[in-house]
Design a protein around this nucleic acid. Structure first.
Lengths: 335, 335
DNA sequence: GTGAAAGCGCTAACAG
DNA sequence: CTGTTAGCGCTTTCAC
């Protein structure tokens, strides 16, 4: 029988006739307690239905065993898979996760980080396509370690876990070139974002150069990350007489694919598509989407693992982790 | 210039020459402070870069302005859309969200609820297909209000927000009957779950009866909630000579659709499909999937709104909310 | 191996 | 309108 409203460590101590300190020791698995008293304390805890109050513990110890996760949107499959990796290893290390959606709005990102800091989280995992100056400052002042997952800061100052976006895009273009396609469109987010300008675009241009294809900026497109945007941008891609596209988002790629087919293009013969996130979307359609393969779950998991080290003040050899990517060849490319 | 390591309310009070209480009052927007001292306090806060410590506040006030969300899996689009609704209104009311994935494992669900309780959350939103006896007990003992979102407890004791699953399935069957399909398969989760046995199956049987179709339990199928499961169960559905299927999960429905098409069935002429969750999956495929339309975001939002009332001890007239559903007619049904 | 005592940073009566 | 005084429930030296 447990009391409805919770017993405190004080009640337990009283019941057994020991001090708070002793109870605290057994609760925290401290060795310096005689086996017999430990037993008694444990019994009392059981009988009283005592559960430690994590808030009080947090105040006293200055550790909350809680981390913050800042992400654009939980309903975005790419990020939610990262989040799952994060959550799993967080639990493994007994951390809880405070989740915040930002829709990539710098104002909300800043608020989120500040809020998390005031909640005294032990660390933060940050996801988002771009790290605004102010967000960066806020992070710097947060006095909790931060690691970026699937995200890049232009200066590469923050610990992060990613794939090599340059190489990934480069290989995607290589593949299309090998398949005799030459007017390859690239669809990304805004070029003001480092990941697009400094990574995706660079990979794209590098591959073109290797193939002696002259770069045509009419083949560069910017689109939001959703299906409707894909449908919409497809019209322009078609008008630009492209014979292939590398898209940075699976929903966008799907929008493009459906539009192209409805406008008489045979996929992949007339028009090839390679997408970037390899979410579940890629295998449910016909044809299935060829995609850059990203270890999404692992990106989250590794980022979280890194964060645990940071929170323990452990030395980290490499703070700029690049996980291996692949190219998942499916139905929207010839090979 | 802000000090790196945070100032406390005490520092602010000192700086201004007022008491802790006064600072606390202005921080908490309490009216009883003279405008001039309020100004001074605010200035000091600014200068010192003071940020209230939410943990200390939580301990003192016994309110953490944090709620717990227990869900099967963030990467499941159905649940992640509910989560987004929850998160948005949580933020609106200045609550933070502690997120836990359970994979519907009762053991982990129980642990999650207990853990959240020890973190002193002010309330909990629970999602999951079935409420195990033990989970229910844990919830009852958690001394934080709980509301179910898109989830049902067999006894209907807990506050919850759902759609009318009975009617929704009934209407789905009606539609197929009207389209002259008679061997309609039903794919659900385990019949041990109330939502399947007491809702989906009942709606299915009700509709069949109305149409004078004799119920054939060979048309009942149980499958996991993923694409592979759909592909797999499809073989059996084909063997059972069904001419239509109502599936409880979009990925499953997609698996079935692709299998059927690859086995010569014309969709929807030979075989109709209606799925249940109306996630983004339904519109990216060709044909698009006809689906029961659920206000997923709203289910989460309304559940959260309800929780805020519960946390404020407000009276709630109706604790068993059923939100309106629709039938989104698309390409996998004739009409 | 165990206890005493001093906080952690803040809120909440209660006075005045 | 403002200050004083207790705690909230726990951890953590420092003694013994």
């Amino acid at each position: 029988m447990q009391k409805k409203s919770s017993a405190t460590i004080y009640d337990v101590a009283n019941r057994v006739g020991v001090s708070l300190a002793t109870v605290s020791r057994v609760v925290n698995g401290n060795s310096n307690v005689r086996e017999s008293t430990k037993r008694k304390v444990l019994d009392a805890i059981e009988e009283l239905g005592y559960h430690p109050n994590a808030v009080a513990r947090g105040l006293a110890s200055k550790k909350t065993t809680t981390i913050g996760v800042v992400m654009p949107d939980v309903t975005d499959m790419y990020y939610s898979e990262l989040a799952r990796g994060i959550d799993d290893v967080a639990n493994m290390y007994h951390y809880d996760v405070l989740l915040t959606n930002t829709d990539e709005d710098p104002v909300r990102e800043t608020m989120a980080v500040n809020n998390l800091a005031s909640k005294q989280v032990d660390g933060i995992i940050f996801m988002g396509n771009e790290l605004d100056r102010e967000v960066l400052n806020t992070i710097a002042g947060a006095d909790a370690p931060v690691v970026l997952a699937g995200s890049i800061d232009a200066e590469g100052q923050l610990p992060s876990v990613n794939i090599d976006y340059v190489k990934a895009v480069e290989e995607a273009v290589d593949t299309m070139v090998k398949n005799k396609h030459k007017r390859i469109a690239l669809v990304t987010g805004p070029m003001t974002h480092a990941i697009n300008k400094l990574h995706r675009l660079v990979g794209y241009q590098t591959a073109l150069e290797k193939a002696d294809i002259v770069f045509d900026d009419k083949l560069l497109f910017v689109a939001h990350q959703d299906y409707a945007a894909g449908l919409q941008i497809a019209e322009k891609i078609l008008a630009a007489e492209a014979d292939g596209v590398i898209a940075y988002d699976d929903e966008v790629a799907l929008g493009i694919m459906n539009y192209m087919r409805e406008h008489g293009k045979r996929i992949p013969e007339d028009f090839e598509i390679i997408t970037s996130n390899d979410t579940k979307f890629t295998i449910v359609t016909r044809p299935e989407l060829t995609s850059i393969g990203q270890p999404k779950y692992d990106i989250g998991a590794v980022a979280m693992r890194m964060l645990t080290k940071l929170m323990n003040n452990e030395i980290i050899d490499d703070t700029q982790v690049k996980l291996p990517h692949t190219l998942e060849r499916r139905g929207t490319t010839i090979n």
